[in-house]
Write a protein that binds this DNA or RNA. Sequence first.
DNA 1: AACTTTGTGTTATAATTTTACATGAAATTT
DNA 2: AAATTTCATGTAAAATTATAACACAAAGTT
Lengths: 252, 252
Amino acid sequence: MKKDRIEAIAELLDKRGKLTLTQLDDFFPDVSQMTLRRDLLQLEQAGRIIRVRGGAMSVKEVQKVSSEPYAKKTAMHTDAKIKIAQKAAGLIEENCSLFIDGGTTAMYLAKEMRDIDIHVFTNGLAVAIELAQKKNLDVTMLGGQVMKDNLSTASPVARSYFENTNFELAIISASAFTPENGFSCGSMIEADLLKMARKKSKSMYMMLDSSKIGKIMPHTFARLDDIDVLITDDDFPADLKESFAKRNIIVM
Amino acid sequence: MKKDRIEAIAELLDKRGKLTLTQLDDFFPDVSQMTLRRDLLQLEQAGRIIRVRGGAMSVKEVQKVSSEPYAKKTAMHTDAKIKIAQKAAGLIEENCSLFIDGGTTAMYLAKEMRDIDIHVFTNGLAVAIELAQKKNLDVTMLGGQVMKDNLSTASPVARSYFENTNFELAIISASAFTPENGFSCGSMIEADLLKMARKKSKSMYMMLDSSKIGKIMPHTFARLDDIDVLITDDDFPADLKESFAKRNIIVM
DNA sequence: AACTTTGTGTTATAATTTTACATGAAATTT
DNA sequence: AAATTTCATGTAAAATTATAACACAAAGTT
């Protein structure tokens, strides 16, 4: 059905921000590129997307463009991150209380999450805005000084927020990982926040795309034993997978 | 000069919204299309424009196209709001500490603010993101439950943030105003937050576009005497202006 | 049943963009 | 001051992408 397909394209674009025709073609293998082009033309005329050379982008994405440093980061390893986010989204159950960090992977997770009755805490501005779109979901933003490079907040004050909150689950992404140094990130106050989140939640899922393996950032916020589930992509090394499994950590 | 030309292109695009390469070539006959292409590429990487097939368009133009729920609100009385925001931005001095609320007018204020050394507190997600773009400026986001309709936070917990902070100036916009009921808004916790902001700051400037005069919202957060400066548009009624002046409130 | 409309695919053609290389001017180093 | 590097620019070929034109079939309409 044409209408459904156009709707699906619009949604896809909202999620992914930007798509090439080739990528679109992969999603809709049963129609020709020409048809997809015509769909894009219609969407453009409806003001919902903007056609750019090679494909199209969502209007929402364009608004984000103004935040250049963040947008740049967003563009990296997109596919892997989305896949990881999808896996993570599938693990979230209704009626739970949840912490999500403010990274770009978390941002994709926010996009992929179903609009169900959950309460989410986050320190990511972009994550909060994304989640605010969903009607049934409740969002609480953690305050603090805004870090310009990744649009998330962190500050010693933010800790006070945690004092009276508890969540069943924290889903967090790391900037770097080695077996020796654990999961690390670049900012001390962020590391502090994430440690705190770990303490306050019953269990912790870690999202880690394989490009981050072997990298070390200054501040470790979690070690292997701290996490319950590791969500990663297909390129995750088999030997590492084993050492996780040995510690009863589910790798998926 | 390359820099000047790029600047000129950016301005042109902001004015005309969209231009084809051929049109651009007419404006700049002394350089080749290839050079113009490269200029556009740079502008795109800087996040100022979007290249589309045939030429480019300004980001601002794209934003006009969109009509999401939040964007819809943003689009109302845009011109008046921008003018008010510009006036307000002119009043902000370097090296000060400032509170801005999370409304749409505040959002425009954030856009208009110069990139100088200031510390800004805000409860607006969109405001915080906008301000995060500026290098010299420091932003602190007030946490709390996210209100989906206006993308700002408010919660009793947010009060605790204020306890150890002080600012010279609070620039706030109201959803409604009558002389009898003062400045009011729709949410009780938001009203509470704004009251708190008023207490904590040395002075308070109110942004009020004239469309809001005569309207009443459930929760009053400030009365006439609470404010020091009223920033409004040209349609502001003369008689009201007088009654402000009587109380030594500057109307501009 | 004949006719239109609509959605689609195919191919050829056109337009646009990118790439690669060349040039000269300006800035920097030696 | 000469040599070298860097930078902005131009040119033209190559690659990519978009449009146009036509064909065809299915679903409505008259």
